[in-house]
């Protein structure tokens, strides 16, 4: 998983280093116990993720399809001053970013759904022309979910969060952040077996809600 995310790294340019300073400071402050720092951090990360997601969607080449884990790490590289951050900070950041990825994606899904309802012809042109070679991911294909399915998942996840916050968090990191179990271990600072056990249960719970 890490390997693929490096492939998608965009490089930190000097133009965003001032911003990187800000986010790094906020992240450190938050870790040091300043709760308000998170409030100021979230919009910055959210903006960045949203922008990255839009940019990824705009990329024309097939090999640049969007990967959540790439976005999350890319946001990290762009927003955090690389020279002054330790590894723990990175795990925290990625945790925050995965949560925000969920929000970005869900906003997008809602807009997408709205656009679809507004003009029925759109969906055909999107799938039929953009993804040639018979692999067009039609919403009816057995393995794929529809926009409504993810929106439903999102709501179910809200309910799960009230029941078991850690399980919800794992789902968020995995499904919306695209993180592998090994990375989830790092972010939540729990053992691999705990990650796997909690995921199994959360998945069952969600399936029951969704099916």
């Amino acid at each position: 998983m890490l390997r693929s995310c490096y492939r998608n790294f965009l490089l930190l340019s000097d133009s965003c280093s001032a911003m990187a300073d800000d986010t790094t400071k906020l992240l450190s402050a938050w870790r040091a116990g300043d709760a308000s720092a998170l409030d100021r951090l979230l919009p910055l990360v959210y903006d960045e993720l949203h922008r990255l997601a839009r940019a990824a969607m705009r990329r024309e080449r097939r090999d640049h399809t969007l990967q959540p884990t790439a976005l999350v790490h890319e946001a990290y590289v762009r927003l955090i001053a690389q020279t002054r951050v330790d590894w723990k900070n990175r795990a925290h950041f990625i945790g925050v970013a995965a949560h925000l990825m969920r929000r970005v994606t869900m906003n997008h899904a809602r807009e997408h759904g709205a656009a679809k309802r507004g003009g029925g012809a759109l969906k055909v042109s999107l799938t039929a022309h953009d993804l040639p070679g018979g692999s067009a991911p039609a919403a009816s294909a057995a393995d794929d979910a529809g926009v409504e399915d993810v929106l439903a998942l999102n709501q179910a996840l809200d309910r799960l969060e009230r029941q078991d916050p850690r399980q919800a968090r794992i789902v968020e990191l995995k499904f919306f952040g695209g993180l592998a179990s090994r990375e989830i271990e790092e972010v939540l600072d729990i053992s691999r077996s705990t990650v796997d056990r909690e995921w199994r249960m959360a998945r069952a719970w969600l399936k029951r809600e969704l099916l």
Binding site: E60, T105, L131, P137, A139, A145, G146, V147, F175, F176
Partner: peptide, 24 residues
């Protein structure tokens, strides 16, 4: 529910709904 199949839940959101993220 655990025995039920819902394959898209095992991937990430982009794999689950690629149409949502198709290039504009």
């Amino acid at each position: 529910a655990d025995a039920q199949s819902l394959p898209w839940l095992d991937g990430d959101v982009v794999e689950a709904v690629p149409a949502l993220f198709a290039p504009e």
